[in-house]
């Protein structure tokens, strides 16, 4: 059985205009846990989707400060991982796990 921790690392695929653009370079974008490290993400993707990952780049998008009825609030931070797959391998992100 795969490690259950993998499911906590990978939160969801990120399906956006930008993510569709990078998919041309054999890269897939995921929302990941904030405390996930690159090696963890690589292990999780390889285990869950059965593909070979050549590189993982991450970014931490800080939540915006929003006001609602005068009260200041802060949106959640979000970590994203741009995963580069080995040549010839694909992940169909829209079908889910």
């Amino acid at each position: 059985m795969t490690d259950l921790r993998h499911y906590d690392v990978i939160l969801s695929p990120s399906i956006t205009e930008k993510s569709t653009m990078v998919s041309e370079h054999n890269q897939v974008v995921f929302n990941v846990a904030k405390d996930a490290s690159k090696p963890e993400i690589k292990a999780a993707i390889e285990a869950l989707f059965g593909v070979k990952v050549t590189a993982v780049n991450t970014l931490l998008r800080k939540g915006k400060t929003k006001r609602f009825r005068g009260f200041v609030g802060r949106q959640r931070d979000q970590k994203k991982a741009i995963v580069t797959l080995a040549d010839g391998q694909t992940i169909d992100v829209s079908t889910g796990l």
Partner: peptide, 16 residues
């Protein structure tokens, strides 16, 4: 669709 500007949704995604 969230994540896309109107009119910029890729066709494959819309079909799905």
């Amino acid at each position: 669709i969230n994540g896309f500007r109107p009119g910029k949704v890729p066709f494959a995604h819309m079909k799905k």
